[in-house]
């Protein structure tokens, strides 16, 4: 369970089931056993209601390359049934430190990190209760990662729930309140990130083995 105002980082090696878990929250996949609940309601019971409270940031945030940052954000916000003024969009882009000159250029001219920033700005502007982030710092440079961590911390401080999946153990320890270790689709460990309670042996095992946990 992830509480309001909490950042939960789900760690695991390749094929551990991190992205699969996120897709289950969005109703794209049904769990083979158990339930996925948001605000106490089964996701598969009302997928639309679940998706309405979630802003999802996929691993490779491929927005539309033939649109610029403003147009992309505008389009996806309209798609979600919300809207934002140009000023709001600029504020969000300021928050993710996207250079002003680039904002009217098409995304085909952007680097991977710049595209990721636009996607993060979109997630911010969605202003939903829950943020699901799949490898959100992938493609960002170290300073941008720090800025991103500060950003999601500030969002969590406003009461939002942040669930992120990542390979980055160090980054997760820096930003998350709670860390879950996933191995072959099973949660094998859960730690409070700031209490120095991380069991390094379990982490090592989770990343080095794809076999079933004992």
């Amino acid at each position: 369970m992830v509480e309001a105002g909490e950042i939960y980082a789900l760690l695991g090696g390749n094929g551990a089931g991190k992205s699969t878990t996120l897709l289950s929250f969005l109703g794209f996949l049904s769990p083979s056993s158990g339930h996925v609940r948001i605000n106490g309601k089964d996701v598969n019971y009302d997928i639309t209601a679940a998706r309405n409270v979630i802003a999802y940031l996929p691993e490779s945030a491929s927005l539309y390359e033939h649109l610029n940052a403003h147009e992309n954000i505008h389009y996806f916000l309209q798609l979600s049934g919300s809207s934002a003024s140009q000023e709001d969009i600029n504020t969000a882009l300021d928050q993710v430190s996207l250079v002003v000159d680039a904002r009217q250029r098409k995304l085909s001219e952007y680097s991977k990190g710049m595209r990721q920033k636009v996607a993060i700005a979109l997630a911010i502007l969605r202003d939903t209760e829950i943020l699901l982030l799949d490898e959100p710092t992938s493609g960002l440079d170290p300073s941008a990662i720090d800025e991103f961590h500060q950003l999601i911390r500030s969002l969590a401080d406003t009461g939002k729930i942040v669930l992120m999946v990542t390979h980055d153990v160090y980054g997760a320890c820096q930003v998350a309140d709670k860390i879950g270790l996933l191995q072959n689709g099973v949660l094998v460990g859960e730690f409070m990130a700031n209490e120095g309670s991380i069991d390094t042996e379990t982490v090592h095992k989770a990343f080095s083995s794809n076999s079933s946990p004992s």
Binding site: L26, F28, T48, N52, I54, Y56, A61, S62, L79
Partner: peptide
């Protein structure tokens, strides 16, 4: 193929 399918469907709701 462009990796947008899930983002679109998750954002569109319906």
């Amino acid at each position: 193929a462009a990796g947008r399918h899930h983002l679109l469907e998750a954002t569109a709701g319906r």
